[in-house]
Design a protein around this nucleic acid. Sequence first.
DNA 1: CTCTTCCCTTCTGGATACAGCGTTGTATTC
DNA 2: GAATACAACGCTGTATCCAGAAGGGAAGAG
Lengths: 227, 227
Amino acid sequence: MAEDGRPASAADSAYLTLRGDILSGDLPADERLTELGLAERLGLSRTPVREAVKRLLIEGFLTRAPGEGLRVTALQADEVEQIFRIRLMLESYGARRAAEFATEAEIAELFRLAEEISARTPARSDADYDAMTEANAAFHRTIMQAARSPRLGSMLSLAVNLGLVLRTYRMYSAQDMTRQARHHHDIAEAIAARDPEWAEAAMSHHVLAAAAIARARHGQGGSRPAA
Amino acid sequence: MAEDGRPASAADSAYLTLRGDILSGDLPADERLTELGLAERLGLSRTPVREAVKRLLIEGFLTRAPGEGLRVTALQADEVEQIFRIRLMLESYGARRAAEFATEAEIAELFRLAEEISARTPARSDADYDAMTEANAAFHRTIMQAARSPRLGSMLSLAVNLGLVLRTYRMYSAQDMTRQARHHHDIAEAIAARDPEWAEAAMSHHVLAAAAIARARHGQGGSRPAA
DNA sequence: CTCTTCCCTTCTGGATACAGCGTTGTATTC
DNA sequence: GAATACAACGCTGTATCCAGAAGGGAAGAG
């Protein structure tokens, strides 16, 4: 929805800004908000803000209590685990389907992206980090596209959004990074081999490894303190 | 979002009406639409229609091509399979978590709903069908609530919406109905036993059985012809 | 002194008005 | 006859406006 290169609409940028503010803690949990207040904060009218708020409500970042107004949802203790579990299910299924339906062009793209990630590993500069993050996102996006299931794609993008904060490679050790980079090659090969089982297992492995890293870095809680 | 008893907002009713029209084929696949046209059709202004359209876009019922306008998405051949597969993953996980986190009150509610479904089985009247459908929805909703994972809940409600058309019991044989009714008791017992593995397996079983029925009834395609 | 009631403030949902942009159709020129 | 350019129409995104509902505070009565 905000994945293309066109200039983001005001509604999209409002959504991205607010989500970022929530994840970064700039808008603290349990913060009481109003649409008008957010509109002024962003320098927009209420219309695009309303759209963004609606979306954030659907995605669970915000809560609208009947008499309590709008609130930032507090992350639960095991939220990170849940997100990874959901990602695990959806992405593994996506990889399975990609092995069945990917075009040759998509497979080539997967190998290209895996190569690009490897070339930057281990990251040494901000540019490396950014490029890796982008290539990684593109890799997963390509797989979902190859899965030929728009529904699955939209659901996953929701789950990934939730885990966005975890997608930064900056918390990875050099060893972590090389391992994850290898995984991308494995996944691409499994899909190229048209082997759904292998692709599913490779993706499961990949996501579980990422979960383990996140768990180790974050301890039990999320990146945003629960209180 | 439209689960409470209060009078539905115009946006919600627009959403429900449009979704119904799409699923029933009243708005045929590939139909070209405009927000204004829909607004006039529904006798509303563009604002609530816009909200409904946005939601339908997220859920994949509609597609907005950059220069092509708004279109009703054509169901893919294996769409039903995908929906059930996603439900399988999410609901099984939900049942697993419910076994860990459900309160005694929620467990009692599950038994009560399972009993209500059994009492109506096999359905003999329209009222029976409606009550069963409602109790079934409540059963699954209660489990998701007991899973203590709002994110999971919102994702599932998205997936279930997609499969809404399949939730009617009217295509079930008497044998199907009694089997599904038994499943609800099994699931409730597994959760009451606080056994996550059992709960997950019971729910998997339940969803897979439902998928088999839908597959048999629908053949390969969806309920709405692809063209 | 406390409880209840009424009014005012504020917030959200819905409608309408406006601007920018893309598409399409037509006319003119090569 | 075909291609290109220009004009007009339509659609979407954004802003502003209006009404209804809900909450808080203040004032009056018990």
